[in-house]
Nucleic acid binder design. Structure first.
Length: 613
RNA sequence: GCGCCCGUAGCUCAGUUGGAUAGAGCGACGGCCUCCGAAGCCGUAGGUCAGAGGUUCGACUCCUCUCGGGCGUACCA
C-alpha cells in the first residue's frame, strides 16, 4: 500500500506504515517479579536445605536466595535439583564438595526420599506418596496455584485488541486480541485486579480516511447490509484512488480537523455512524473468541482530555516547538526521534491520545502495570511514550510496558513468507478462518462421533480452539506463519489435542460410575507409577507465574501440552475402570485432577474444554 | 546510514533468565484398537544451536564483530 494508504489493522496496527514502540517491559522493574509459588514440597525441602547450610556455617539470609530449586535437565536425575555453584562460592568450598555435604545432611524424611550429590549438583527425590498427596489434594481443593489465588493487591491494566474500527476485523487483529485476553485471565488467576481495555482506534487519520472514502463513494444501504465487508471495500478503494489523487489525504486531514473542532457538523455525524456500525460488526468475532473487555474506551474518549495532558507536558517544561510542531525531545534517553504531540496544523496525534490515556488510567485505576499488547513494529512508539513520561518525572512511567508480538505472515507462490497485509485485498477475515476450522471439526465429528449431542456447538468450540491455540503456542515475538494446512491439522501440539485429553478424562469419570474419592480416602502409595504426570502438575504454578511475569501465554500453552501428553501416556498402561477398588480410587483422583488442571490451563488461554468431542 | 527483533532437526518451534548427555510436534519410516475415546500411544531416522572471537569452573543462553531475514526510523496509527 502506499505509505499512507489506510492500512491500519489495529490502532496499534501491524499493517500501518510507520511506527515503532515499546520497551519490552520487564527489565527495569525486578520488583514486580514475585517469589515463585513454591509448593509445600518445595517449602519443606528448602527449609531442610537452609537448616543444613546454616549448620555448615553459612549465613541464612545470604544463602536463602541461592537455594534455587529447579527441575533437573534430565528426569532421571531426580525431581528437583540444586546447583551448588553459588552456595559453594559463599562457603569458600568447591561445588562438588559442598554438594556432597548437603546431600549427606539432607537425610530422608516423610517427604524427601533421597538427596544425591552428582558432581556440583544435588538431586532430590520426593517420596511418591508425598508427591501425590500434596499435588492431588491441592488441585482437588482448588488451592492456589492450581486454583485462583486470593487477591494480591496488584492492579494491572491491559490494553489489547484495540482495532481501528473503520476496518474489517481480519487475521491481523487476532493476535493482540487473543494474547491480551489470555493475559487478563492469567493475571486474574494470580489474584490481580485486571482492567482489560479495548482502546478502539476511533479517532485520527485512519478514521478520517474512511470517512472521506464514505463521503465520496459510500452508500448507507450497502453499509448496513454487511458493514465489515463494505468498509473493507471502501478501504481498498481509498488505497487505490489515493495513488492517483494524493489530494484525498489532504481532504481527510481537513475532515479530521473539522471533527476535532468539536462542532456538530457532517464529520461528527459521519463519525458516529461509522463507529456504531463498526462496533456492532466487531461483536461477532469477539463473541466467538470468548473475549470480553472491562472497558471499551476508544481514542475519541480522550478528545476533551488532550489539552489537559498537553498542559501537563508544558508545565513539566519538556515541550518544545520544532518546525511548527510541538514535540518532546528524548535524546538524553537514547531516542533520536522526537515524540510529536501536536502537528503544525494544530491537530493531535496518536501519542497525544496515548499520553492522555496514560494519565486517565493512572487516575482511574491506579495500576502497577499497564500492558500494551501491540505489534513489535510499534516499539518506538511506546519507547517514546514511556520516555516522555519519564522525562516529565511522572511515576506512571515505570508502569508502562509494551508487550510486543510478531507479524502474521502468509506464504507466497514461491514458498516464501511475507507480511500479511490487507494490501491487495488479500486479507483473510477472521470469520472465514474460524468457519473453515469449525467445518473441518464438524466433519471429523460426523465421522468419529456421529451420535455426539450438541455437535455443532462442540465443533465451534474445538474449531475456534485450534485457531486460538495456534496463536498462543509459540513465543509471542515470533511471527505467526499462517498456513491453512498446518492450522487445520489437529494432530500433535494443538488445541484439539489438549481438548481431546480433557474429553477422554471426562469420559472415564462418566463411565466409572463411582464418585471421585476425597483426597483423605486415597492410598497415595498406589500412585507411584504416576510420577511423570504428577511432576508436570507440580510445575503448573511456576508456569502461570512465569507467563504473567513475562507476559507470555505460550508458557501456559506448553504446560497444557505437556500435561495432556503425560496423561495420555499414563492411561495407555493404567486402567481406571476395572482396577481393584483402592487402585481405581487413587487413579480416579488423579484423572479428576488432571482434568481440572487441563481445564484451568485452557481457560487461562481463553479456550473451552468440552466434555465430549 | 542508524536502532530494534529473529536465526536451534527437512518444516514449525521449546530450551524455566549461565548449569548435567540440546528436546517436542509436523512430515518420513515401523509398530499398537476382541480392554476406560486411535483428534491417541510406542519406536526409528534426523543437529557444526548461522559463523568467528571473547567473558568463566561452565555458553543455545551474556559481550563484540560478521553473514542472512524482518521491522522501524518527526507532523499516519
Amino acid at each position: 500500500m502506499s505509505p499512507h494508504g489506510p492500512k491500519g489493522a489495529t490502532r496499534r496496527g501491524p499493517i500501518c506504515a510507520a511506527e515503532a514502540s515499546g520497551s519490552t517491559g520487564a527489565p527495569e522493574a525486578p520488583s514486580r517479579y514475585l517469589p515463585r509459588p513454591l509448593t509445600e514440597l518445595h517449602d519443606h525441602l528448602r527449609e531442610r536445605l537452609l537448616a543444613a547450610t546454616t549448620a555448615l556455617g553459612l549465613d541464612r539470609a545470604a544463602a536463602a536466595p541461592l537455594v534455587r530449586l529447579d527441575p533437573p535437565k534430565n528426569r532421571e536425575h531426580g525431581d528437583v535439583a540444586l546447583g551448588a555453584f553459588q552456595l559453594a562460592k559463599l562457603a569458600g568450598k568447591a561445588p562438588p564438595a559442598l554438594a556432597g555435604e548437603l546431600a549427606a545432611a539432607i537425610t530422608a524424611d516423610d517427604v524427601i526420599e533421597s538427596a544425591v550429590a552428582a558432581g556440583p549438583f544435588v538431586n532430590f527425590r520426593f517420596r511418591r506418596a508425598a508427591l501425590a498427596r500434596a499435588v492431588l489434594t491441592a488441585v482437588q481443593t482448588d488451592a492456589a496455584p492450581y486454583g485462583r489465588a486470593p487477591a494480591s493487591g496488584q492492579v494491572v491494566c491491559i490494553d489489547f485488541s484495540s482495532p481501528n474500527i473503520a476496518k474489517p476485523f481480519h487475521i491481523g487483529h487476532m493476535r493482540s486480541t487473543v494474547l491480551g485476553n489470555s493475559l487478563c485471565r492469567i493475571h486474574r488467576h494470580l489474584g490481580a485486579v485486571v482492567h482489560g481495555i479495548n482502546h478502539l482506534g476511533d479517532w485520527g487519520m485512519p478514521f478520517a480516511k474512511m470517512m472521506t472514502a464514505y463521503m465520496h463513494w459510500g452508500n448507507e444501504q450497502e453499509l448496513h447490509r454487511s458493514p465489515m465487508r463494505y468498509m473493507f471495500d471502501l478501504y481498498k478503494r481509498y488505497g487505490q484512488e489515493v495513488k492517483e489523487h494524493p489530494a484525498l489525504d489532504d481532504e481527510a486531514a481537513a475532515h479530521f480537523r473539522a471533527l476535532e473542532s468539536g462542532a456538530d457538523n457532517q464529520e461528527r455525524r459521519m463519525w458516529q455512524l461509522l463507529r456504531d456500525e463498526s462496533l456492532q460488526a466487531f461483536q461477532g468475532p469477539y463473541q466467538r473468541l470468548g473475549v470480553t473487555f472491562d472497558h471499551v474506551i476508544g481514542e475519541s474518549f480522550f478528545e476533551d482530555k488532550m489539552e489537559a495532558a498537553m498542559a501537563r507536558v508544558k508545565a513539566a517544561g519538556v515541550l518544545e516547538n520544532s518546525d511548527g510542531a510541538e514535540v518532546v525531545w528524548l535524546k538524553e534517553l537514547g531516542i533520536k526521534e522526537p515524540c510529536l504531540l501536536r502537528k503544525s496544523d494544530g491537530a493531535t496525534l496518536y501519542h497525544t491520545r496515548d499520553l492522555a490515556a496514560a494519565f486517565y488510567r493512572e487516575d482511574t485505576f491506579h495500576p502497577d502495570r499497564i500492558l500494551y499488547v501491540v505489534g513489535a513494529e510499534q516499539k518506538l512508539h511506546f519507547d517514546q511514550l514511556k520516555g516522555v513520561l519519564t522525562k516529565m518525572q511522572e511515576p506512571i512511567a515505570k508502569a508502562i510496558e509494551h508487550v510486543p508480538f510478531g507479524l502474521v505472515l502468509s506464504k507466497t507462490e514461491d514458498g516464501k513468507w511475507e507480511k500479511f497485509a490487507s494490501r491487495s485485498g488479500n486479507a483473510v477475515f477472521l470469520d472465514e478462518i474460524l468457519d473453515e476450522a469449525v467445518a473441518k471439526v464438524r466433519a471429523i465429528i460426523r465421522e468419529k462421533n456421529p451420535d455426539l449431542p450438541d455437535a455443532d456447538q462442540t465443533a465451534e468450540q474445538v474449531g475456534v480452539s485450534a485457531i486460538v491455540f495456534n496463536d498462543l503456542k509459540n513465543s509471542r515475538i515470533k511471527d505467526v506463519k499462517f498456513d491453512w494446512e498446518s492450522m487445520l491439522n489437529f494432530d500433535g501440539e494443538t488445541g484439539p489435542y489438549v481438548q481431546f485429553a480433557c474429553a477422554r478424562l471426562s469420559s472415564i469419570l462418566r463411565k466409572v460410575e463411582v464418585p471421585v474419592p476425597a483426597p483423605g480416602q486415597v492410598d497415595f502409595t498406589l500412585l507411584a507409577d504416576a510420577e511423570r504426570v504428577l511432576l508436570v502438575m507440580l510445575d503448573f504454578g511456576t508456569a502461570v507465574q512465569r507467563a504473567a511475569e513475562q507476559s507470555e501465554p505460550s508458557i501456559v500453552t506448553a504446560h497444557t501440552i505437556a500435561l495432556a501428553g503425560e496423561i495420555h501416556s499414563y492411561l495407555r498402561d493404567h486402567y481406571v475402570i476395572g482396577a481393584e477398588p483402592a487402585v481405581r480410587d487413587a487413579r480416579l483422583l488423579l484423572v479428576d485432577a488432571a482434568r481440572r488442571l487441563l481445564t484451568t490451563g485452557l481457560s487461562l488461554l481463553g479456550i473451552a474444554a468440552p466434555e465430549r468431542m
